[in-house]
Design a protein around this nucleic acid. Structure first.
Length: 988
RNA sequence: GCCGGCAUGGCGAAAUGGCAGACGCAAGGGACUUAAAAUCCCUUGGGAGGUAACUCUCGUGCGGGUUCGAGUCCCGCUGCCGGCACCA
């Protein structure tokens, strides 16, 4: 069979040989600034692949697609005189290794090591020019030490809304002690930071504890007990981004909502920056749009509704200011930030509420809603709270209490999946309470319904059934009044803001003109929004607001095979371990099974759990964020370390991949996560000898080219940008964005046009392709299939096609002797190139270079095929022409070209060669052929001198036989000569 | 429902608003060979006409438009793929 068959060229012999040569000579090693061999005169180019999770299944053909693209570009840039950084590593924490461990009892570290070895060998077999000295592995303690360190930087920071950036939390502490009078101002912001719970508790405590609580809850990493996505099957919680249709993205297991104590990262505070700073990036527009949609900014207004007391009057105005209407324009849903003793009946703590002070008539709370259509306020005929809304308990009437409680329990039990499936069927219950429409003064009922989400806006809405599909449906089902307040066309004579005549027949959600809306009547929607918002603001009843769909990032997992948090708990408070204690290494376990409860598997390591503080040398960073005594320790009690326990959760897999591109830059650095000199060079191209980087970098800088699949459009690419921005704010990195240019490779389908999968049996294994056709054929085919970004099916006969092309290149240079051995061909001679040969060779140099820059590899390969066909026809074959072809083919088929280059007497590596220059003079034709059209239809072709004047061209064109025939008896209305392109004659 | 992307031969695909189908696959024919493989050469979008070199004509999902000229730009559809989906 195939191994019996004689190979058209001996790729199986020379491919491994050249791979060894590259490895031995460290051909693709790139020194850092300051290292031996570093050339500061060269520009830098950082080309990055999305590093793989080393699964047990090994590489599939999708991996080498992007990797070959970056390899071609990296090798090309090296030939063009760049310092090229092109590294590879392993995103090796993750669920599959842990689940395999559960099944087999084998330690995840063992399987991970074996898989990494396999992946590395597979990649090396394809001949990628990685700098293997820069390899990183997220599970390496020398790596995750710095993942933990970065987490601590986030933990020790807060977001300053005025500066719009993260700051060390120590500064916040200073600010609070320096300016205690700013407390009320801070209180406003505190709610915005989700810290109102702490504020409430601190109300009657000392100033110091208020401050501690405030600091505690200002951290960019915080503890929350909000309902999270719990997956019982996987035994862990998942981020919103990891839940697809109510099922886990990994494994497809059902996911339910339940409140749990979890670490969250305040990515929401970066929503605006994450959105704005996309603009400067050279990314596919679709990915940018995807991220913008995910962040989901919407502009609107918050409106405060008072609750009517039983007699129907508006309730008492609360004595405290409504600090939800704070200074910052950014709000998000209230989080229940502190573990609640009874999670099913959380303490109401909504804004403005003062629960039952003894002996006084309780002031009734207000309800704040978010709306993008404040212009429809006159049409708000009822309100809806999310079932989980914290106000429900305090407003529900006795008669409705049972029904409400039943509904809330049912809603809580519903999984996300059920909630999604039942989405169209609205359900809800009346609370028995009423609110006052602030503009019409009308008494409107307050309902609860699960179509209102607790996590978005304020978790409460004003319902305008005439102009919102969902409210319309709900109102129809429960026979609630529907009032039309927007008309698609301007209407006259329907003013007065009074009652409308009849309920509308259908829901109108578009923009139009206000009707039945008092002072707004006749205004177009945009103006009506502005007018009503101004009026509300003047009366303290509302204000413009911006809302984001983006939620804070749920950052903890109940897994073994992940980075432990560098956090210990004591007396119910968390604190950072000292930096000198990093890395916090996971304990050895033999049983990795989920506990079956939300208790993480690390809880099984009883000794590890009990925190034994290391003895600190002088100068060690023990104090971390702020001194231990301020952490809520009981005064007078000596801190006792024996009671301290470690945080048992681990970080999600995204943690390691949030910064790996930085570690490649300086992967052996034991002092810092990345050396600043090297970081500045590879991210901005400048060194300390050059002018310092200012805070306003015109080009965002970062990785020059990042290639990977679209599946990371909102997960990895959003998380990594977030971490990078925090590091930038804190002065640890020099660019605001990590990845300047992004290219998405398309999906490779099976030969049947279906997605490759084991069950379909259409999976192509790159190893098989290599053993039959060689690594160069695999590389070349993956690039020749079509545009890199396109989804395209695999075709083995296509592989065969590029294989034949490579064999033709081989035979350009080599021929078989009588004994059947390959030897340099006699046809290859040191003769000058004929002009026609020189022309095609130089055209090839030009086009291939341009196409590589444009990431258009399929057309570059087509041009090299044309060139090869031309050279095959030449006899003798000028060796200079062949050498030039080998140079431009080298980034694509590095093994074959190195071999042939050596066979032609080359003593240096093509990989180290300089990209050839083309001679533009050769590409200029003396005579050019021009098509001549009559009325846009091709009639003839003429040949003219390249510098012929338009008048000359015109004359020749008119004289062309077929043109003359078409023109006979007609008058020329217009004649267009496009120099070098065509002639078009318009006749009557 | 909303937001993207795509639509060109039998197939993968090319084409700064300027000769549609480069390059490759597949297919057919031929050369070499005892034979096969490999290799090399020729043909290959549809239709019509011509003994022939060739000639004419239609053709880039559908319908309009802009333009001397549209696969390409604009408007309106259809189909497929991907994402989001009660986000007020």
């Amino acid at each position: 069979m195939s191994n019996e068959r004689r190979r058209p060229f001996p790729f199986d012999q020379f491919e491994p040989r050249w791979q060894r040569v590259w490895a031995e000579r460290a051909t693709f090693h790139t020194p850092n600034p300051g290292d031996a061999g570093f050339d500061p005169t060269k520009p830098k180019y950082y080309v990055l692949d999305m590093f793989p999770y080393p699964s047990g299944a090994g590489l599939h053909v999708g991996h080498p697609e992007g990797y070959t693209a970056t390899d071609i570009i990296g090798r090309f840039k090296k030939m063009r005189g760049f310092n090229v950084l092109h590294p590879m590593g392993w995103d090796a924490f993750g669920l599959p290794a842990e689940q395999y461990a559960i099944k087999t009892g084998q330690h995840p570290r063992a399987t991970t090591e074996a898989n990494v070895a396999n992946f590395r060998a597979q990649l090396q077999r394809i001949g990628f020019g990685y700098d293997w000295q820069r390899e990183v592995n997220t599970t390496d303690p020398g790596y995750f030490k710095w993942t933990q360190w970065i987490f601590l930087q986030i933990y020790k920071s807060y977001y300053d809304p005025e500066l719009g950036k993260a700051q060390p939390i120590a500064l916040l502490e200073d600010a609070l002690s320096d300016a205690p009078q700013r407390r009320s101002e801070w209180e406003g912001n505190m709610y915005l930071l989700g810290t109102h719970e702490a504020w409430r508790k601190s109300d009657d405590s000392s100033r110091a504890s208020w401050r501690d609580g405030f600091i505690e809850h200002s951290r960019l990493a915080y503890i929350s007990s909000a309902p999270v996505n719990w997956c019982p099957e996987l035994g862990t919680v998942l981020a919103n981004e990891e839940v697809v249709d109510g099922k886990s993205e990994v494994g497809g297991h059902p996911v339910e909502r339940r409140p749990m104590r979890q670490w969250m990262l305040r990515i929401t505070l970066y929503a605006q920056r994450l959105m704005d700073e996309l603009d400067g990036l050279d990314w596919p527009e679709s990915i940018k749009i995807h991220q913008r949609n995910w962040i989901g900014r919407s502009e609107g207004a918050e409106v405060r509704f008072e609750i009517a007391d039983a007699s129907g009057r508006a309730g008492f105005q609360p004595a405290v200011p409504s600090f939800q209407l704070g200074t910052s324009g950014v709000t998000n849903a209230p989080h229940r930030d502190t573990p609640s003793d009874n999670e099913r009946n959380p303490t109401p703590d909504a804004p403005g509420e003062i629960p039952g002070a003894a002996g006084c008539k309780p002031a009734l709370p207000t309800i704040t809603v978010f709306t993008t259509r404040p212009d429809t306020l006159y049409g708000a005929t009822y309100m809806v709270l999310a079932p989980e809304h914290l106000l429900v308990d305090s407003i529900v009437t006795e008669e409705q209490a049972t029904a409400v409680e039943e509904y809330r329990e049912k809603a809580a039990r519903k999984s996300d999946l059920e909630r999604a499936e039942l989405a169209k069927d609205k359900t809800g219950v009346f609370t028995g309470a009423f609110a006052i429409n602030p503009v019409s003064g009308e008494r409107i009922p307050i309902w609860i319904a699960d179509y209102v989400l607790t996590g978005y806006g304020t978790g409460a809405i004003m319902a305008v059934p005439a102009h919102d599909e969902r409210d319309w449906e709900f109102a129809r089902k429960f026979a609630l009044p529907i009032r039309e307040v927007v008309s698609p066309e301007p209407r006259l004579g329907l003013g007065g803001g009074s009652v409308c005549d009849a309920e509308p027949l259908e829901c109108f959600v578009g923009e139009g003109y206000a009707i039945h809306s008092g002072p707004l009547d006749g205004l177009p929607t945009a103006a009506a929004k502005a007018e009503i918002t101004a009026r509300l603001e003047a009366q303290g009843l509302g204000k413009t607001t911006i809302n984001f769909k983006l939620r804070d990032w749920l950052f903890s997992r109940q897994r073994y095979w992940g980075e432990p948090f560098p956090i210990v708990w004591e007396n119910g408070r968390h604190r950072a371990v000292a930096e000198s204690e990093l890395p916090v290494v996971p304990p050895e376990l033999s049983d990795f099974k989920p506990t079956g409860t939300p208790e993480p598997p690390l809880s099984k390591a009883k000794d590890w759990v009990r925190y034994q503080p290391v003895h600190h040398e002088r100068g060690d960073d023990v104090s971390t964020a702020f001194p231990l005594p301020s952490l809520g320790m009981i005064e007078g009690v000596e801190p006792s370390h024996s009671t301290a326990t470690r945080e048992l959760n681990t970080m999600p897999q995204w943690a390691g991949s949030c910064w790996y591109y930085l570690r490649y830059i300086d992967n052996a650095n034991a002092e810092r996560f990345v050396g600043s000199e090297a970081e500045r060079y590879w991210m901005t191209g400048t060194t300390s000898h050059q002018s310092p980087v200012t805070s306003h970098i015109p080009k965002p800088g970062g990785v020059d080219l990042y290639v990977g699949g679209t599946e990371h459009a909102v997960l990895h690419l959003l998380y990594a940008r977030f971490w990078h921005k925090v590091l930038f704010d804190l002065g640890h990195v020099s660019t605001p964005e990590p990845f300047q240019k992004l290219v998405n490779q398309g999906l490779i389908l099976g030969e049947d046009g279906q997605k490759m999968s084991k069950s379909r049996g259409n999976v192509v294994n790159p190893d098989d392709v290599i053993s039959e056709y060689g690594a160069d054929s695999l590389r070349l085919y993956e690039m020749f299939m079509g545009p890199l970004e396109a989804t395209k099916p695999w075709s083995m006969s296509g592989v065969e096609g590029v294989f034949r092309f490579l064999a033709r290149v081989w035979r350009l240079v080599m021929e078989e002797n009588q004994a059947g051995e390959w030897q340099p061909s006699a046809a290859v001679q040191d003769v000058p190139m004929e002009k026609s040969v020189a022309k095609v060779v130089h055209a090839t140099i030009k086009k291939v270079g341009e196409d590589i820059e444009a990431v258009s590899f399929n057309t570059a390969i087509a041009q090299m095929m044309v060139c090869t066909n031309a050279l095959t026809a030449a006899n003798p074959r000028p060796v200079a022409a062949i050498r030039l072809l080998l140079h431009v083919l080298n980034p694509f088929a590095p093994h074959l070209t190195e071999e042939l280059h050596a066979q032609l007497g080359g003593t240096t590596l093509l990989a180290d060669a300089t990209w050839p220059a083309f001679d533009p003079a050769l590409l200029i034709e003396d005579e050019i052929e021009l098509p001549v059209q009559v009325n846009g239809k091709l009639r003839d072709k003429i040949v003219v001198k390249k510098d012929a004047t338009p008048a000359e061209v015109e004359a020749i064109a008119k004289a062309a036989p077929k043109v003359a025939e078409s023109l006979a008896g007609k008058t020329i209305k217009k004649l267009i000569v496009v120099p070098g392109r065509l002639v078009n004659i318009v006749v009557a």
